[in-house]
């Protein structure tokens, strides 16, 4: 796997969290897809934690769209947390914020689900 990116999966109370660190681009597809498959077996709520994101291009945003469609098809909920102001702005431009629930922090996301 590309050493500039990792997609760690962990189970928390009420959700499976995917910690996205490093880069999110076209080469992330297989690793992100694997991480999603693992996470979806753990919980119905999958939280993408972007606190460790350092770089994202438009192919990375495309991967998130296809992941969202996959989650919708499987009746899973996909939520986002840990976005910096910059990446929150990109979610607004691309209108992904219309389709995904965005939380400030992981604690906020998990708290709102209880």
């Amino acid at each position: 796997m590309d050493q500039t990116q990792t997609f760690g999966v962990r189970a928390t109370e009420g959700a499976a969290v995917i910690d996205i660190t490093g880069e999110l681009n076209a080469s992330s597809d297989p690793a992100l897809s694997d991480a999603y498959a693992q996470a979806s077996e753990l919980s119905g709520l999958i939280l993408l934690n972007f606190a460790g994101l350092e770089y994202m291009n438009s192919s990375g945003i495309g991967l998130l769209v296809t992941l969202l469609i996959r989650a919708n098809r499987q009746k899973k909920r996909l939520a986002i947390c840990g976005l910096s102001d910059h990446y929150r702005h990109i979610f607004q431009i691309t209108k992904l914020d219309d389709a995904m629930k965005i939380y400030e922090t992981e604690a906020d996301a998990l708290g709102s689900d209880r």
Binding site: A51, E54, G82, H86, I90, E104, E106
Partner: peptide, 20 residues
């Protein structure tokens, strides 16, 4: 993952100039 919201917000990633 202990980085604060303020710290994250103040960082300018290297892709910043590439986005509309």
């Amino acid at each position: 993952m202990t980085e604060s919201r303020e710290q994250r917000a103040s960082q300018i990633p290297r892709d910043a100039a590439n986005w509309a």
